[in-house]
Design a binder for these strands. Structure first.
Lengths: 340, 340
DNA sequence: AGATGATGCTCAAACGATTGCACTGTAGGT
DNA sequence: ACCTACAGTGCAATCGTTTGAGCATCATCT
């Protein structure tokens, strides 16, 4: 079934005017007489005329829509970022198309191709954990396609970026743990390819060394699919807990990994914080309801989305190529609860 | 900064052909010689040509994109539905634009107008809690715009719908409570305007009457903003717990309301299930990690999204108007945990 | 030789809206 | 009476792509 909508032609035919006159009347051009304007506007109102955004896009060579690529919408952090993106985008007259990479490089690449082939004016992206080869993004960026990174950025591509202070966030958290006497602190990391994983590792190491604790590489485990693959978290935890020198605390680098740990603990009847303490990077709105209530490092997700979108719109709407790119670093919030 | 992309014209100019020949060559038309085809296809590949979807949309009078309106993406149930929608849509060559109503009638209306003015071929919608007047949807539907409802449907609009068996889901849950000896069971409902609220109420009443428990209207409370307004849940719980005859169990009708209850209990030091039992409609992936682990009625969210999308694509792609509409009713899953 | 037909290409219109330019008609000035 | 000015409107090109119709060119058949 075709849904036939009203066009400017229908108005022109009905009123015995040309389409140009109708167009000008609707845009309140000075060239059109008051009478004609009134006639046109009233009739347009009556038949509920709406300009066709597709035709406008073709004419103006812009779609007034933004593309977003994240690993998963069903993730508190990203859905909060998206809230921020949406609010800024709509207030500036843009709409928004989302794509999920589900942490797959191939999906990310396809999504990127799709969006970039002129169905959006610019792109906000947090790369997938799998992504090691950035050429698909680099190419676009080099051809002048506006891209802004948030959260999981790509160092070697020069454009606006918005992240949190990952180093400081983790440093504070680990510091808190060492201060409480924890000595064997494991780091369940996201993919080792992500910049933020490295930054966080540095914060972890710094805090340990300041507490005179030697870094034990067997306590640092990577989940290269971000916990998306079923037994990923279980496997690394098995490894950690199989060792003779068990950890007394765990730092999990994302929401998915944190809940993964909790599920593991529940299954193996490991008590938190009695047997092991837990701190996670988490924006889960219910982390205080967990058993136990979680100590978390929280990111200003909404703000991140807003800032990133403003950056992107700046790139899109700028008359001349932008050369000076900024990386905005936001502060995390550290919330101590029962799990430590 | 304008991002200039390659068009069919660039290819035509370079190869001294007409745009029609290039177009036909790319679509592998029989009218074009093998040599020319090869030439064109190779050059297109080389300069990375991608057809402009905007131009195609204008020509074909279809955008190959679907619109989704939900109250909130940051809600486990809806983000799971969206996962389902996305997977079907992309596999059938459609992309997807989301809009959040944030439970506001005005936002919903605006979003609808926007999407319908030809930027999407069809619409999937779960109406906001505030919506009482459906004329904005009815109008569109009557003009032949393809719409499919899911979860929060509108009875008086005749089109495909996908819901769960709300009656049975609640009946089973309340039955479970009465079987365990609970007698004063409160119902914290969503907006009273939603069809599902009424269906659930009927399940609630049936189960109570079968257990010879009289329905006490003071135990039935509506949250007309779905728990989006700060103190909404707190207020109704205050009312319920202020009464002399306190409830011994609570049934919460959505994820937001369920976590709202938990937050309230935590604040007022009410122990679950010792002081009061709790059952919620919830698709939260971590409801087993809560303190206590929650007994829940779970909806097949992903499946719902898939089915709804298939319905919508059927409406969009059908050659002739569809008159026979279906309402698909899915079964819920009842998961008993510690909270009851 | 002339008709027929296949082959391989180009022209131009169309989708819906915008906009520079051209055109018509009227009024006012000289 | 003629020129200028200008208000009010229409024509046609444009954005990128598709597609029906038309037009050469050449081989083949009678």
């Amino acid at each position: 079934m075709k849904f036939e909508a009203v066009t400017i032609k229908d108005i022109a035919k009905e009123l015995n005017l040309s389409t140009s006159t109708v167009s000008r009347a609707l845009r309140d051009s000075y060239e059109i007489s008051a009478e004609t304007k009134k006639l046109v506007i009233e009739y347009a109102e009556k038949i509920n005329y709406r300009p066709n955004p597709i035709a406008l896009s073709l004419k103006e060579r812009r779609t007034r829509s933004l593309g977003i690529i994240v690993c998963e919408i069903a993730n508190s952090f990203f859905s909060q970022v998206i809230d921020g993106i949406e609010s800024v985008a709509y207030s500036r007259g843009y709409n928004v198309t989302f794509l999920q990479s589900h942490e797959s490089f191939d999906k990310e690449k396809l999504s990127l191709e799709y969006l970039a082939s002129r169905s959006v004016d610019g792109l906000l992206i947090s790369v997938s954990t799998e992504t090691q080869d950035f050429s698909h993004i680099t190419q676009l960026s080099n051809r002048g396609f506006p891209i802004v990174f948030f959260d999981r950025i790509v160092d070697e591509i020069d454009t606006h970026k918005v992240i949190v202070n990952n180093f400081k966030g983790v440093y504070t958290a680990i510091n808190h743990l060492t201060g409480k006497g924890y000595k064997r602190i494991a780091y369940i990391a996201n993919s080792e390819f992500l910049t933020l994983t490295k930054d966080r590792l540095n914060g972890y190491k710094k805090a340990l060394s300041e507490a005179d604790i030697e870094v034990d590489d067997s306590l640092i485990k990577y989940c290269n699919h971000g916990g998306m693959i079923n037994d990923e978290v279980e496997k690394v935890l098995d490894e950690i807990f199989a060792s003779k020198k068990k950890p007394d605390a765990i730092f999990a680098s994302s929401d998915k990994l944190t809940t993964g740990c909790l599920h593991y603990f529940k299954k193996h009847n490991i008590k938190v914080p009695k047997n092991v303490a837990l701190i996670g990077f988490s924006n889960n709105e219910n982390s205080d309801l967990f058993n136990p209530a979680l100590t978390v490092i929280k990111q200003p997700a909404m703000e991140m989305g807003e800032i990133a979108t403003n950056y992107l719109l700046e790139l899109i709407e700028s008359k001349r190529p932008i050369k000076d790119f900024e990386t905005r670093i936001l502060d995390t919030e550290f919330i101590v609860r029962e799990s430590t």
